[in-house]
Design a binder for these strands. Structure first.
Lengths: 145, 145
DNA sequence: GATGCCACGGTCGAGGTTGTCCATTCGATC
DNA sequence: GATCGAATGGACAACCTCGACCGTGGCATC
């Protein structure tokens, strides 16, 4: 993981369909050297996958909320992970400092779908209550990884 | 935007480097028909770009926080966008319902870098104060788009 | 029903890209 | 300086891309 790798990753982040030759031209390697490095980065798990960014307003998943999760007693992160991984509307979540135990970013196709997903989070035995902030307008969505 | 387009998008989400021929084999089109549709989807802005998912622990950007933004008076979303787009550590942000004006998801290489980025958000003239929740452990990170 | 138009798909071929081979270079070690 | 390993660049066949061209079907107009 040297500067060449980082350069390749930066270029692939901008355009995952760039040819190895073009990438090599930018970082100063031949196409075959770039391919070897990319293959290694994928094998090592540094590059997790090649994907596309889709306009969220088009694919319909444009109803979002940030939800603070408050649990009863102490809940292990593993336990929270088990609860949340069963709800596909959860885009992003982490345990946090502060009064809430976790913050959960949810995305659904509609307010009812969001409400339904929220309900599935709330019925988990350890969840005491939640506090939601519905997203009114999306300002930034840097889709880094 | 029909079922063929949706199928192509799903396949590209899984592997943005799949060849047009392979995609066509899965959705039942020729390679050129797939290319035409992909080109159209890109031109129409449905597909915003081709990118890679990078292990966040490897690229070093693994210090995160959710920040509630409280503004003085009423602030237009455009104004917030202008403020936040100048801070690259802002991954995701939206105006929200509730007492805060916006929620901002930030990611940096270290706590000092996060603090610095937060400071750059706070010095904006309209920002009254912020309330941060530092992410302790990342639970979910579905990197859909 | 005939006509023109348009959107869409398939086929084809030139040119570019990928993936694999091998010789070479570079640096470290003995 | 000899040897080894890791990485590179170049060569080449197989594959893919991408534009040009043509055929088909839907649809409105005459």
């Amino acid at each position: 993981m040297d500067n060449l790798d980082r350069g390749i990753i930066d270029l692939l982040r901008q355009n995952a369909r760039a040819s190895y030759g073009d990438i090599g031209g930018s970082v100063g390697l031949s196409a075959s050297a770039v391919k070897r490095r990319v293959d290694r980065l994928v094998a090592d798990g540094v590059i997790r996958g090649f994907t596309i960014q889709v306009d969220p307003t088009v694919d319909g998943y444009n109803t979002e909320a940030y939800v603070e999760l408050f649990c009863r007693g102490t809940v292990a992160p593993d336990e929270l992970l088990r609860i949340l991984s069963g709800v596909p509307e959860v885009v992003d979540a982490g345990t946090v400092t502060g009064s809430a135990d976790a913050i959960v970013h949810m995305r659904a196709r509609s307010i009812p779908a969001l409400e339904d997903a929220l309900e599935r989070v709330r019925i988990a035995p350890n969840v005491d209550h939640t506090r939601s902030a519905i997203v009114l307008s999306r300002l930034i969505h840097r889709t880094h990884d």
